[in-house]
Computed example of a mutant assay.
Amino acid sequence: MKAAYEFTPGKLPLLVSIPHAGTALTPEVEAGLNDAARPLPDTDWHIPRLYEFVQALGASVLVGNYSRMVIDLNRPADDKPLYATATTGLYPDTLFDGTPTFLPGKTPSAQQRKSALDNIWQPYHQQLQTELERLKAEHGYALLFDAHSIASRIPRLFEGKLPDLNLGTNGGRSCDALIEEHLVACMANQKPFSWVANGRFKGGYITRAYGNPAQGVHAVQLELAQCNYMDEQAPFGWRYDRAAQLQPLLEELIHTMLTGARQIA
């Protein structure tokens, strides 16, 4: 079985988590996917490549290897819904557009799903927690940047076109207010990309579970509209021209988060 994640430790007080870029499948999921789900359309395509600069900066990086079609690393283990509006669960039975994920009678069994929880979800979260504890012990605080992307138009999930940058801080509860203020100012001070803070995407389970500013752990989620760096139709190609415009802003956001944290440390 493929490892649950790839992890690279860094020297900064920052962990970049990328839970939805994986494409590995368990045999039962691969055998059961219908034609609409087989291209893995709900993947956060190319996110490790988009954020490859963070390793050069010295951040720790944690990347999930398995597709969210197997298990969603950004959902709670008890599968309680994170949003009152349409969403997908720990074991997605539908795609974002509402199409069934699996062929009739081919949904993985409860035992197979429990295996995914034990062997994929749990190891990822254990590594995430262990690294945040290490960073806090070494630096006095820890920063968590949860990196995501999604198709810019999904009528079932949101009306119209999604803003280019969607910052989530669980309504201000997952990080210090000064860090959020700095990040909002950074987005507001540029013109090419639209943005929103705590709009449709306020942060998933990872942001909500690990962000605890009172304990010195500050977490944010950034959901990117995929049209800004890739083709949104299969085969979901990387767009050099668009990514080259977006990456400097992402790097500025990372620096801004680090600077804000130093001011409150």
Rank of each mutant, 00 (worst) to 15 (best):
A3N: 05
A4D: 10
Y5P: 00
E6R: 12
L15K: 08
V16Q: 07
I18P: 02
I18E: 09
T23Q: 06
L25P: 08
P27M: 15
A31P: 03
G32R: 06
N34S: 07
A36V: 05
R38D: 13
L40P: 00
P41Q: 02
I47S: 02
P48Q: 05
L50M: 05
E52N: 14
F53Y: 08
Q55D: 09
A56K: 12
A56L: 03
L57T: 12
G58Y: 13
L62E: 05
V70T: 04
I71E: 01
D72P: 03
R75F: 09
R75W: 06
P76H: 04
D78M: 04
T85Y: 10
G89A: 00
L90C: 11
D93L: 11
D93R: 12
T94L: 04
L95Y: 07
F96N: 15
T99A: 02
P100V: 06
P100K: 01
F102A: 12
L103I: 11
L103E: 14
G105L: 06
G105V: 08
T107N: 02
S109T: 14
R113H: 12
N119V: 05
N119F: 03
P123H: 08
Y124C: 13
H125K: 08
Q126V: 03
E133R: 15
K136V: 13
A137C: 10
H139S: 02
G140I: 08
Y141G: 01
A142P: 07
H148Y: 02
S149N: 01
S149H: 00
S149G: 04
A151V: 14
A151C: 13
R156P: 01
R156G: 07
L157C: 03
L157N: 08
F158N: 08
G160D: 13
L162M: 15
L162S: 13
P163C: 04
N166T: 10
T169G: 14
T169K: 04
T169C: 13
G172W: 07
R173C: 04
R173L: 14
L178G: 00
E180L: 04
V184G: 00
V184L: 11
N189C: 05
Q190S: 01
Q190K: 06
S194L: 07
S194G: 15
A197H: 15
G199A: 13
F201G: 09
F201E: 13
K202C: 12
K202E: 15
I206V: 15
I206M: 10
T207L: 00
N212Y: 11
Q215T: 02
G216R: 07
V220D: 10
L222R: 02
A225F: 06
A225L: 00
Y229E: 02
M230G: 07
D231M: 06
Q233V: 02
Q233N: 03
A234S: 14
W238M: 09
D241L: 06
D241I: 09
P248V: 10
L250M: 07
T256Q: 05
M257L: 09
Q263G: 04
I264M: 06
A265I: 14
